[in-house]
Design a protein around this nucleic acid. Structure first.
Lengths: 133, 133
DNA sequence: AACTTCATGGGAACGATTTTCATTCCCACA
DNA sequence: TGTGGGAATGAAAATCGTTCCCATGAAGTT
């Protein structure tokens, strides 16, 4: 009785390969539509719905990171596994993955102090990188 | 030559008062539509567009905090001024404003280490509060 | 090759938010 | 107290990212 019954087996299709390939060449975060554009620009024809589905699946299995624009748009980027945060350039989108035992501890502590359990958090840092200085 | 030319004078209207009043009674974060519902439920008729506009204006002048659902929906809540973050209960929406010199410094430092300037960040902590335990 | 199940894609559907624009309302000033 | 005009309102239409539907095509299995 799984909540969302996803397929038993995951298949390797041309479309999924195309999306993965596009993600490799991306340095910063991209929206689903941008990724769709990149894939299409390469001559690989992939439906927009498929791009969304694939990206979502990859997010579920932690193959990509997702973050949200101020306007609520979802941005994707392939990532290393494990818990980490991002330092994103406001101008060029360049992204650096950062880890922070300090913040993790801080967040957990604050939450505990207030009697909150089962804690998680979101944290993104924005700025302008050297190149865009 | 201001980028977005907003009105010279801000007027006090019945609608804005209604939205402000609704915000006072809210403990956690609410969506614009929920706030619209609350206002309407009280008998004050206010257009949805107006609620959106008012909330946005209040956000611009830091009278309310805005955060985004995982699904990208905007949630509003009145707040104290100054830079702070939130500890939000996943179940009941109860919110605690928290300050964290530690994180602020950490974020600035990380950014500086990577050559990023003009730094800002977003941080929200989620958990389950005692009452919902 | 036959078959079963999953995946695809194009367009319709959705839902939150924004815009449009004709109408109504504040409010500074006469 | 009256009034002019910019500001605010709201109903409906427009946006726009994202998801759903479902007939058709492809993967992997036997």
């Amino acid at each position: 009785m799984t909540s969302t019954d996803r397929p038993v087996t995951a298949r390797t299709t041309r479309q999924r390969r195309a999306v993965s390939a596009a993600l490799v060449d991306i340095t910063g975060f991209c929206s689903a539509q941008e990724i769709h554009g990149i894939v299409k620009g390469r001559g690989d024809a992939v439906g927009l719905s498929t791009v969304y589905r694939t990206l979502q699946a990859m997010a579920d299995s932690d193959e990509v990171d997702v973050l949200r624009t101020d306007e609520g748009e979802a941005l994707y980027r392939r990532c290393s596994s494990g818990h980490h945060h991002h330092l994103v350039c406001r101008d060029c989108g360049r992204t650096v993955e950062v880890e922070g035992p300090t913040v993790e501890r801080w967040a957990d502590r604050i939450a505990a102090d207030h009697g909150f359990a089962d804690v998680s958090h979101t944290l993104e840092i924005f700025g302008r990188c050297e190149t865009c200085g």
